[in-house]
């Protein structure tokens, strides 16, 4: 199954019946899959007039308490930024998928990881965070879609799957399990009509009194602290005795893993930390590795964005280097190997 299609089916299996999209390469198969499946299961597939409309349809459906999602690629995600800010400010759960491509502007359509800053720090205006998951295989995309919906509901906030053109377009074997047996999380706040049984619910992000808005934002940030403590996820690969620890997520982590294997064959003690959650960023595992490793090498398909968070986590304990390709270029294991050797000084 193609990554994009696997994402779509996983969302359906997670109980999502409301998809609102707008065509853009390289996520198109996801929407096409939804347009085929949704009508057959009584769900909604709606091709909106724009990414802006699509994310606001998600806002509306999420207000009604259903699992709603949209998907797009980098330029489209910029347009969704407004709606995502409102969704976060209204404490609504929703799933947004970004199958990243090269930027800025129209950029290109080849795989990229240049939206890390946008996803983790600046998706819209205001003080807020969203959950950001970074799968590296088609199977993991499937598993994370389900988790993203669950955590979004639990913490009442938007969640994003930050994939890229490579993961979206590739095929790998995948097992999709239904999660629909899970007990849905109660949403007493949903605007479903009060049926004359309760006072009216209001989904809103406007607070004209600064003290009210500050209190609300502080409450939200208290929730973020809980998430930072409980939801950090990362995979460690051969880090135990590693002198140099690579840090990479998504597509670039696969290349990094190949590079680590090659380096190990040549006797270099290197390992890999692969962040699975980008927000919350897996600071703990990096801090642990900073005690044993002599240095880090962050590998990204960008000019270096996640490396900022790696440096913050490592906090000067050991040097943090960076290697990246951008614009749709994918680094090769050989390039990374060369960079590793340069850092390690060729010493075995």
């Amino acid at each position: 199954m193609k990554g994009n299609e696997a994402l779509a089916e996983a969302a359906i299996q997670a109980g999502c019946r409301h998809f609102f999209g707008y065509p853009i390469t390289p996520q198109t198969e996801l929407a096409a899959y939804m347009s085929k499946r949704m009508p057959k299961i009584g769900g909604t597939y709606l091709q909106a007039e724009s990414e802006i409309a699509a994310i606001n349809m998600v806002l509306g459906a999420a207000s009604a308490g259903v699992r709603a999602m949209t998907s797009s690629s980098s330029p489209g995600i910029s347009l969704k930024g407004e709606g995502i800010s409102y969704i976060a400010g209204s404490d609504l759960p929703a799933l947004i998928i970004n199958v990243q491509r090269g930027g800025p502007g129209l950029g290109g359509i080849q795989p990229s990881q240049a939206d890390y800053w946008q996803a983790t720090k600046a998706l819209g205006h205001g003080d807020f965070q969203i959950l950001v998951f970074a799968p590296s295989t088609v199977q993991e995309m499937v598993d994370l879609v389900s988790d993203a919906f669950d955590l979004a509901d639990t913490y009442r906030m938007p969640a994003m799957i930050l994939a890229d053109g490579m993961l979206g377009q590739m095929m790998e074997p995948v097992e999709i399990r239904s999660n629909e047996h899970k007990k849905p999380i109660e949403k007493p706040w949903a605007t479903t009509g009060h049926q004359n049984k309760r006072v009216h619910n209001v989904v809103n992000s406007l607070y004209l009194q600064p003290k009210d808005l500050e209190r609300l934002v502080r409450e939200r940030f208290a929730r973020y602290e809980v998430i930072k403590q409980k939801e950090q996820r990362a995979e460690e690969y051969l880090t135990e005795d590693a002198d140099l620890v690579l840090v990479a997520y998504g597509a670039s982590s696969r290349v990094a893993r190949s590079a680590v294997n090659k380096a190990r064959e040549q006797g270099f003690k290197v390992g890999l930390v692969r962040p699975i959650t980008l927000w919350p960023f897996p600071t703990d595992v990096l801090q642990k590795n900073a005690k044993t490793a002599k240095g880090f090498l962050c590998v990204e398909m960008s000019m270096g964005q996640m490396v900022d968070d790696v440096r913050l986590a490592v906090n000067g304990a050991v040097p943090v280097d960076f290697y990246g390709r951008t614009g749709g270029m994918i680094p090769s294991p050989a390039e990374i190997l060369t960079k590793m050797k340069e850092i390690l000084g060729g010493a075995q």
């Binding site: 390469t25 390289p26 359509i109 053109g165 490579m166 377009q169 590739m170 095929m171 790998e172 074997p173």
Partner: peptide
């Protein structure tokens, strides 16, 4: 080819180039 590998219970991946 990829499915052939899959049917033999191998790990496989298939990645197309894509363009306009």
């Amino acid at each position: 080819i990829a499915y052939g590998g899959l049917m033999d219970n191998k790990e496989i991946s298939w990645l197309p180039s894509y363009g306009p």
